[in-house]
């Protein structure tokens, strides 16, 4: 089945088996291996990409469901020569070790800051009507869908706060 996708600003036409997940479409068919497969079950977040600006586990959705959708992967956020502020902060704060969960962490964190900006509360938000803060509990809660076995969590939190803070400047 043919599916038209707008990936990182480029129009791509995918012709793949209907059973192809969005993650496998990216990794096996479109040459975008930045999104990682850690579980294929929606349990680790390594495959996180942005669809129309919102974070999603690419392993939990079929590519053919996204005809016309705008998809941003880690490759679309920045390049090694021109890192996004979040990518730069992950490097500076050593927010990774093996790097395998990292593209998912960065896509997730990028969208998460938008969610905070939009005032979405989380499980740990004390006041549902106020703008959520960027303290370590809010970040920890909102980033808990992205597992890191290397356990760079404290550095991931620092990196996200740093990037958010730079953003506000």
């Amino acid at each position: 089945m043919k599916t038209d996708l707008l990936i990182n600003g480029n129009r791509r036409t995918l012709d793949a088996d209907n059973r192809t997940s969005l993650l496998d479409a990216l990794r096996h068919h479109l040459g975008l291996t930045g999104a990682k497969k850690g579980c294929d079950h929606g349990q680790c977040g390594a495959c996180t990409v942005l669809i129309n600006g919102r974070r999603i586990n690419a392993c939990l959705t079929l590519a053919c469901m996204h005809d016309g959708d705008e998809i941003t992967t880690i490759e679309g956020l920045g390049s090694a020569e021109a890192l996004s502020p979040m990518q730069r902060a992950f490097v500076n704060h050593d927010g990774f070790q093996c790097g395998y969960c990292t593209p998912g962490q960065i896509c997730s964190a990028t969208a998460m800051l938008e969610e905070i900006e939009a005032g979405w509360p989380s499980h740990v938000t004390a006041d549902m009507t106020a703008k959520p803060s960027l303290d370590e509990h809010e970040i920890g809660e909102r980033m808990s869908g992205n597992l890191c076995r290397c356990a760079a969590y404290p550095n991931i939190v620092d990196a996200i706060r740093d990037a958010a803070w730079r953003d506000q400047e």
Binding site: T33, E75, F90
Partner: peptide, 8 residues
């Protein structure tokens, strides 16, 4: 680091 944080 730069290669890892960009998926490259």
């Amino acid at each position: 680091g730069p290669l890892k944080v960009t998926g490259a």
